[in-house]
């Protein structure tokens, strides 16, 4: 495993939003087949990092590098990063009234393939993926996220991931707003997508999703920096003790 090249790698990322630095030098290297988790309290900069990696125009990367499968993403727009194989499941997916889930997914798939998706193949794909995520078929003809519950939106995010089949999926607080059954279904969907050729970065406040989507590595983020990295045991410790012990450790190291 150790000599395998990184699939997704970012180095020394600094992010500025509305003139304020919210991420201050974060680096991570993720190999194909791996699952990483970034955990951190609210306001630690983990969502900002996710959006900056995806290319949100309001999240300016002032310093750092991002590579996906050897491609430099930094100069790419969000749509180019997507087509290069990066995916971000949104914490708060937006509603697009009048655009059906099916139409949207087909348009997105077309954008990725550069050609029109065959209608019957597409319908088969959509049907099977929806079934796997326990999404009722009527959602195909409903307008994207328009009037969807929090849990429905999250399922649709994972459906998009399953259809677009990205190399690298960043999942931003996908567990929030899900009840236990929905959490299990969504986790099953994520595990179904995951294979040796792709990788997952879970961004989350809580440990509970990690019971179902097992991370190989856990990183703790605080005040815009990764302050601790290790195995899944960190997540369990966070679950028991909260974030305070990490904070103390950091302060101790800093000699405060």
């Amino acid at each position: 495993m150790t000599d395998k090249k990184a699939l997704f790698e970012f180095k020394d990322i600094h992010v500025r939003v509305e003139g304020k630095e919210v991420v201050s030098g974060v680096s991570l290297s993720i190999k194909a087949g791996e699952t990483h988790a970034i955990m951190g309290p609210n306001g630690s900069g983990k969502s900002s990092l996710s959006n900056a990696l995806m290319g949100h125009p309001a999240y300016e990367i002032t310093r750092g590098e991002i590579y996906l499968d050897g491609n430099n993403l930094l100069e790419m727009r969000a749509d180019e990063r997507s087509r290069a194989g990066l995916f971000l499941a949104f914490q708060y997916p937006l509603a697009i009234p009048g655009v059906t889930v099916a139409n949207f997914l087909r348009t997105a798939l077309q954008a990725h393939r550069g050609k029109e998706a065959d209608m019957s193949d597409f319908r088969k794909l959509l049907k099977s993926e929806m079934k796997a995520l326990s999404i009722d078929e009527v959602f195909a003809t409903r307008y994207l996220n328009d009037g969807f519950s929090g849990g429905e939106k999250k399922r649709i995010e994972i459906l998009q991931m399953a259809i677009l089949n990205p190399k690298m999926a960043v999942l931003d607080e996908t567990d929030s707003g899900l009840d236990i059954d929905a959490l299990k279904t969504v986790s099953t969907g994520i595990n179904r997508y995951h294979n040796d050729a792709n990788a997952i970065l879970l961004v989350t406040h809580y440990q509970r999703m990690l019971n179902y989507v097992k991370p190989d590595f856990v990183h703790v983020m605080m005040s815009g920096k990764i302050v601790k990295s290790g195995g899944p045991e960190i997540a369990l410790k966070l679950e028991d003790l909260g974030y305070e012990w990490v904070e103390e450790e950091v302060n101790h190291r800093a000699g405060v």
């Binding site: 949100h56 749509d79 997507s82 949104f90 937006l94 697009i96 009234p97 949207f104 348009t107 954008a111």
Partner: peptide, 30 residues
């Protein structure tokens, strides 16, 4: 046409022009 909507759609691989057109077509759908 909200910036956030455009970002959401472009993050799925649509160019900004295509994203805007999709939003407009959706608006007209009724």
């Amino acid at each position: 046409v909200a910036e956030e909507q455009l970002y959401y759609l472009t993050s799925r691989g649509l160019t900004e022009d295509d994203a805007r057109l999709l939003i407009v077509n959706g608006f007209m759908e009724p």
